[in-house]
Write a protein that binds this DNA or RNA. Structure first.
Lengths: 217, 217
DNA sequence: GTTCAATCTTTACAATGCTTAGATAGGGTG
DNA sequence: CACCCTATCTAAGCATTGTAAAGATTGAAC
């Protein structure tokens, strides 16, 4: 039959890992296809067959790269946490050295990421819940979002750096607060308040402030 | 054919509303069956056919009470918000009059509800996101969780009661904070911290405190 | 008792997750 | 170069799902 699928189609990023045999890093292509579908049609609309279709391969092809639909989603989630960390680091580049200001900016960029990719953000947490730890792959990645927050918390003096448990507590609290704002700030019910405050970012800052996120300004 | 399904089986609560024709409030029975399955097998394991099976009716029967699978889940979510409000009110009964203490207790009971019914809590928000407002049915229910929080916030003096926008902001901030803690406190990663603090409730109190939830103690 | 509308069942269809068996094609070994 | 081996992909199929008719049942109103 006519093998009518387009050639490798270098996806979004050039495959850093060694590229496999026939298709050319189908694994990456499947993850990208999944993200495309999720962002376009919502998280519920995802199906393994649909992903395969989007990638131009047969319905059973994904099973050579992922044990499960679950495992595909997990890969999408890991990728999401990666992008989140990158997004946070990028936001920090434009911010002064004051640790509290940096922490505040981390919070804003965190929420903005969730607002820009709501379906993927949801999947990130759907799979984080089933995992043993926050996703720190063996892929010893430089950019670990959780570590970034913890270090900033310590630097901001929100907890005694000598007391690891205290740092941990404040870090977790910050994460919880940001998560709560991130998931809810997109609710249509908050539109009036958002307009009253003058836009998305002011609303986020105001909520984070109330929520104890590096409150002192 | 042998009609081998058990008779009405009064569900959990005796049907307060007028009971319909054949089965005896199948609508309620379906919602209860859905909750049973969700709590037993997880939120992903739910299927309309499975719910029908659990309720002892044919696979197509639910379509006479719900347009959609989505609409069944929405009903489960509304029921969940109802139970949440009741749970919060019940928790308030044992608490002194100090508004700040009451607000703190609201937060704890909120998080405990989410911890006790994680799958249903998830569904509550999955459907709340698609709704126009927080679920205040025409069923003018006395117990509205959102109003309860807002009134307590105003009473606690966390915002100028004369300034509705300020009260709204603080209420929303509290809700976001509690939501963040509620969704994350069950993460297995937090087990060490929970043990260090001496249990679930102390961990919740500590996190809520850091997260600006009626902070002054 | 007849009629009516709400309720439930039967049957059916397309789509999905996943399994099994077979085709294809790189890459190493002789 | 021929050979085989293994990873990758396809084809075909099964059980289950969501949902849509169309037909049966039954309580109630006249």
């Amino acid at each position: 039959m006519t093998k009518a699928f387009s050639p490798p189609a270098p996806a979004t990023a050039p495959p850093a890992t060694a590229r496999p045999y026939h298709h050319g890093d189908l694994r990456r292509a499947l993850i990208d296809a999944a993200r495309t579908i999720i962002e376009r049609d919502g998280a519920q609309a995802i199906s393994l067959r649909g992903v395969a279709r989007e990638a131009g391969v047969s319905p059973a092809a994904p099973y050579h790269h992922f044990k499960d639909k679950q495992e595909l989603l997990r890969a999408v989630g890991v990728q999401g946490f990666d992008d989140l960390a990158i997004s946070m680091m990028r936001a920090l580049e434009k911010v002064p050295a004051d640790p509290r200001a940096r922490l505040r900016e981390i919070g804003v960029s965190y929420v903005l990421f969730a607002l820009a990719n709501p379906a993927i953000y949801r999947i990130m947490y759907d799979c984080a819940r089933d995992m043993e730890g926050l996703p720190q792959d063996p892929h010893e990645k430089e950019h670990n979002a959780y570590d970034l927050v913890r270090e900033t918390v310590a630097a901001a003096g929100l907890a005694d750096p000598q007391n690891p448990a205290a740092v941990e507590t404040v870090t977790i609290a910050c994460w919880c607060a940001a998560h709560g704002v991130a998931e809810m700030v997109g609710f249509p019910q908050f539109a009036p308040l958002r307009d009253a405050l003058g836009g998305e970012v002011p609303l986020i800052r105001e909520l984070l402030r109330h929520v104890g996120f590096a409150a002192e300004r």
